[in-house]
Amino acid sequence: MITFYFIAFLSIFFSILVISAKNPVHSILYLILTFFTFTIHYILLNAQFLAIVNFIVYMGAILVLFLYTLMLINLNKDSEPVKPFMVKLAGVVGGGILAVAIASSLKLLGTSNPVLLQNPDLGLVKNLGKVLFDEFLLPFEVSSVLLLSAMVGAVLLATKEKEPKAA
């Protein structure tokens, strides 16, 4: 129980650091820490497959992609121009209002039951694989098409256009 609150505090703390860090590289490093706390959350929920996938895909692949992009566009020469204070204040107030609205609507919901793990092997690979390849076979195949098209699109966008040859 106390583990959850400690990890939850760490997630919130690091995610605040992500959006407040001046240097984008520091932002990415804090984002890695945030995703690590999310992995711990998944382990606490006994969603072992998601924990591993989160660890590999998010912390391994996506954030390395971010770091590479940051390295490609050399940002460290000039720091990011800051928005005026009023705009920042408006942004924080807007986000805070969103959080308060959802939290207060949660209050109307009344009591909440504790999250109990009824089936201990719910999040294991065997169980998830059965559901994935049984009920969700078509979405699974469609997502492979999505990944292929994303790959083609990324390559197409990021390659430099060649100069048209003079006739």
Binding site: I19, G91, I102
Partner: peptide, 14 residues
């Protein structure tokens, strides 16, 4: 955490 993400979109320019 979702609200923090929204704030990040609103206040950053990078």
């Amino acid at each position: 955490i979702f609200a923090i993400g929204v704030m990040g979109v609103l206040i950053r320019r990078n």
